Computed example of a mutant assay.
Amino acid sequence: MKIDQLRAFCAVAQTGSVSGAARVLNRVPSGVTVRIQQLEQDLGCELFLRDRQGMSLSPAGRQLLDHARRILDLTESTRSLMKDEDVGGRLTLGALDVVLVDYMPALIGRFRSRYRGVDLDIRHQASEDLVQNVGEGALDLALTDGPVRSNALESRLAFIDEMLLVTEQAHPPVGGPAELECGELYGFRHDCSFRFRMDRWLTEGKATDLPVVEIESYHTMLACVTAGMGAAWMLRSVLETLPGHQQVRVHSLGEAGRTEIHFLWRSGHLTRNAERLMSVAQELGEVRRAQGWSRLG
């Protein structure tokens, strides 16, 4: 007997049908049916009387209902107890390096001033590693390029930024990759979602013959661009922090450049400290919007 089977049983008892229970539980009807059948097999009795009008509780089902509800209530109260720990404990947070440059310092400073008892572990990882480590439970929370579509993960928009094409100042306007007049393009590793997007931009613009050089330092990227050696993709928030950013030309990538940074966590495993951090992030967003910071979602 499992919790999800009892939850399906109570939902059918409440709605009078499998389809109604599926809507309440946000599941497919076949999944609800399987759980009811498994529960009946496990208990060795029929829990519902089935007819054309729907499903009604059998005598055994009526006997089980109150007990099942108490079990579910106890389960939820236990989960709440584990989430409502005193301010303290640990928060393991992963983030893209671009998030660490501009957004994270203000967020962490505000969070630590309020929750000094929380032990923070902040890790810099590529987007592919962030998604994997959140799914495996190695990270409580991550900030990564999104949205991430997975039944095992949940996400919430943190802020919106813009990916830009950066060239030397004398470069003509660029509307697509075919109009680039340079020998190479600077990007990230293949395990980074920004690199996936850049490769797609090149493919759609039929410019797959343009060499892409992987550089892990934004300062080095900008130095190469300033010297007229090539072009680069950079987030606006990162570019504006780099010395010499006024010495290059910036080109909009349009919709291809829109960048959403999302909080990401494992479904059903949002810790209290992760909730606190996101709450502080929301407050920070409101402050920055009031100050005219336009890149927040």
Rank of each mutant, 00 (worst) to 15 (best):
Y103I: 01
G268I: 04
V12M: 01
V166E: 00
M104Q: 02
P177E: 06
R35Y: 03
R272C: 03
S17M: 09
Q291P: 00
M221K: 15
F48V: 06
R69K: 08
T33L: 13
R90D: 04
D42S: 15
A68F: 12
V280D: 00
Q291S: 02
R62A: 07
R79C: 02
L165E: 03
H124W: 04
G244L: 11
D140F: 04
R258G: 08
R295G: 10
H171T: 09
I71M: 06
Q291K: 10
V166D: 00
R112S: 15
D73P: 00
D209I: 06
D73E: 08
A281G: 07
R116K: 07
L91P: 06
L141F: 06
L93N: 01
L242I: 15
W265F: 09
H171N: 03
F111W: 11
R295Y: 12
L242R: 04
R90K: 14
H190C: 08
G285I: 03
L72I: 08
P147V: 05
S77T: 13
P243D: 12
A158I: 10
P29D: 12
Q132P: 01
I36G: 00
R288M: 08
G31R: 10
V24L: 12
R149F: 08
L72F: 08
E76V: 10
G117H: 11
L91F: 07
L235E: 09
S155D: 04
R114Q: 15
T203Y: 11
L141S: 09
R272S: 09
E255S: 10
I122V: 15
L143A: 11
T271F: 02
A13N: 05
Y218F: 15
V28R: 15
N273Y: 05
